[in-house]
């Protein structure tokens, strides 16, 4: 419990962050910026986990551990995604998501 700051503040903050991430995911064309948007979304979720843990179940650490695992998975995801992006860039010289349509045909 933190003095003077209710749970809602954190939740509203994380919601805003989440939808900003969604916006970025939809409008951005560069694969790396899309990856950044995903990081934003993951972070907002992390804030949620931690805030719930802190405010509702302070006698346990589940939210925190979940966050740690999410961070680890995000790291794994980022490494694989960047490997894929670099590979794509090598192949077609471009990482614009709208032009990567080779599997379509």
């Amino acid at each position: 419990m933190i003095e003077g700051i209710p749970l809602h503040y954190f939740l509203v903050l994380s919601t805003l962050m989440f939808f900003i991430g969604v916006y970025g995911f939809i409008v951005r064309k560069n694969l790396i910026t899309i990856l950044m948007s995903i990081e934003l979304i993951l972070n907002s979720v992390n804030i949620n986990f931690v805030a719930f843990n802190k405010f509702l179940y302070p006698d346990q650490l589940q939210g925190m551990f979940f966050t740690i695992f999410v961070v680890a998975i995000a790291a794994a995801e980022a490494s694989v995604a960047i490997a894929i992006i670099i590979n794509i860039y090598r192949r077609i010289g471009n990482i614009n998501v709208e032009e990567i349509a080779e599997l379509k045909h």
Partner: peptide, 12 residues
């Protein structure tokens, strides 16, 4: 369309 972002907006 094969456009990922279009799917995303529809999904959301």
């Amino acid at each position: 369309s094969g456009q990922l972002q279009q799917y995303a907006i529809v999904f959301i």
